[in-house]
């Protein structure tokens, strides 16, 4: 594991914004960290980077306690976040000139490739860059020293489609050599690229798994039900966002095994099945119901 946390927690303003998180990022993975705004994604990433300190538990990066990370460790960790402050009065070229000697493994050819790929204008003052260009500048400076681990906080937020594709192309190009941990809400473009998905809600890590197993267990289910029928008081916990419209019961089954098992579960709930429609879900369609289900739970 390149990143491993144990019961990692963080208190902010008297509230536990990260609670007992046990995150494991395998070497070479591209893990997407999903969750609603305020779920604790940014705080978790900052804990890993030793920007925040744990109130309980701990994190290890390359087997080293995050509280002990020093300059030599940051030679191997790239970090790009929307909130990162850039030296606005410098030109793009001057900023690269400033960073280059700070990194032993800085790759000049890769720097040129990244600058060309993103079309970053060398002479432009950084505070005059567009939102998209300043995000790609952060990404380019986080990648040019060939980090072993790349931590990204909402790298695609507010970017135009073509810029998002440029970012994705670069991530695909660097992945494998670089382990990627990326907090994001925008998964439309990266659902094929992500190898692992982790999901946070209310400071907790609800699950982390390979994208393939997540896709295999999530199904959009629609049941045509018999006439005299009420929604049973308790449905299986794995059925998310269950709603009844007329004679149709719809829900996301987050623990799908097979149609036979699902039919048995429906029978156990006393639901008479008129018709059954089971569809797989794209990763982007999984995130929204999960976030909604979580909100419903905390709202009770």
């Amino acid at each position: 594991m390149i990143v491993e946390t144990t019961a990692l927690s963080h208190m902010f303003a008297g509230r536990e914004v990260v609670r007992d998180v046990g995150l494991q990022v395998p070497m070479g993975a591209a893990m997407v960290l999903l969750g609603a705004n305020g779920a604790g994604k940014t705080s978790l990433l900052r804990l890993l980077l030793n920007i925040l300190r744990p109130s309980k538990g701990g994190a290890r990066l390359f087997g080293r306690d995050s509280r002990c990370l020093g300059p030599e460790d940051f030679q191997r960790i790239g970090y790009a976040a929307e909130s990162q402050i850039l030296p606005g009065r410098l030109s793009v070229s001057a900023y690269f000139d400033y960073l280059r000697p700070l990194y032993e493994r800085w790759d000049g050819a890769l720097e040129q490739h990244l600058r060309r790929h993103f079309g970053l204008p060398g002479g432009q003052r950084i505070d005059l860059l567009s939102h998209g260009a300043s995000m790609t500048l952060r990404l380019a400076t986080a990648l040019a020293f060939r980090p072993t681990l790349l931590i990204l906080d909402e790298p695609l937020g507010g970017l135009d489609q073509d810029v998002r594709e440029q970012v994705l192309d670069i991530l695909i190009d660097r992945a494998g050599d670089t382990t990627i941990l990326m907090a994001t809400q925008e998964i439309t473009d990266i659902d094929r690229f992500a190898t692992h998905v982790a999901f946070m809600a209310d400071g907790r890590l609800l699950f982390q798994e390979e994208t393939g197993t997540l896709a295999a267990r999530m199904r959009d289910v629609r049941v045509q039900v018999g006439e005299m029928w009420d929604l049973p008081a308790t449905l299986p916990e794995s059925w998310l966002t269950a709603t009844r419209t007329g004679r149709t019961l719809g829900f996301i089954d987050s623990g799908f095994v097979s149609e036979a098992v699902l039919r048995q579960q429906l029978a156990d709930c006393g639901i008479e099945i008129g018709g059954l429609d089971i569809r797989p879900l794209a990763l982007r369609d999984i995130a929204v119901p999960l976030i909604r289900a979580q909100r419903g739970e905390t709202g009770q």
Binding site: G28, D169, R192, A194
Partner: peptide, 16 residues
């Protein structure tokens, strides 16, 4: 593997 990953927009480990 690299070309396949870039072209299909998948992770190189998946292409591998």
């Amino acid at each position: 593997v690299r070309a396949l990953a870039a072209d299909l927009r998948i992770h190189p480990n998946t292409a591998h």
